[in-house]
Design a protein around this nucleic acid. Sequence first.
DNA 1: ATGGTCGCGGAGCGA
Length: 256
Amino acid sequence: MRIATWNVNSVRARLPRFLPWLREAAPDVVCLQETKCRDSEFPREEIEDLGYAVEAYGQKTYNGVAILSRLPIEDVVRGLPGDGDDDERRVIGATVSGCMILCLYVVNGRAVGTERYEHKLEWLDRVRDLVQESYPMEERVILCGDFNITFDDRDVWDPERWRERILCSTPERAALARLTDCGLSDALRKFTDETGIYTWWDYRTRGFGRNQGLRIDHFLMSPPALEACVGVEVDLAARGGEKPSDHAPVIATLQD
DNA sequence: ATGGTCGCGGAGCGA
């Protein structure tokens, strides 16, 4: 099974890039973040025409997640436990081919020390609680998405510039560690310990051309999923060209 | 340059 995660920064604005990519890359499962539209406005037919079932959980203007699958999909869950209808839509989960998948768009947090930053840390602990409660590490469990956190300085193009800033601060990394402490591993690090592998580049600084990026989109896997995982790749071509998202897709391949 | 550029929605906010 090949599974992709991609923060598309509006699924409707990205459609001229997304549909050709989906046709070419053709992953079995695609987890999307920042779809930025209501479920009724999701470009469902165009994606179904390529052979994918569409499960969306979106809202107007902000946030929004979705799971697309060309394999049978079951047990779809929307939101975190306790979320109401007016809460930000950042989580969708499903089971595909025996893999329990959780697609996350983690709170950005704006800047260290702000109210949104504190909310980010609390929100991550709610995800941790959900994983502890409902995702047995004996199963194939895959958390993926835009975590808006770097694991360490290997994930940062200029660690000194980013020191203790948003996406890189110690409390954020500690909150991410509390999640992985449930028994999950950063799947990319099964294959390489190199620096310079990034998934997001700021539009404003035009950082992509100079590879001034951060690795904030991740696959976290339980031991059985990690064992089956034979590769994690960042699709840099999808970040180039006309009207790209500010994130690149990341694709994981699992055997069996 | 505590800047810039996107997307949404039609001004200013979030990222």
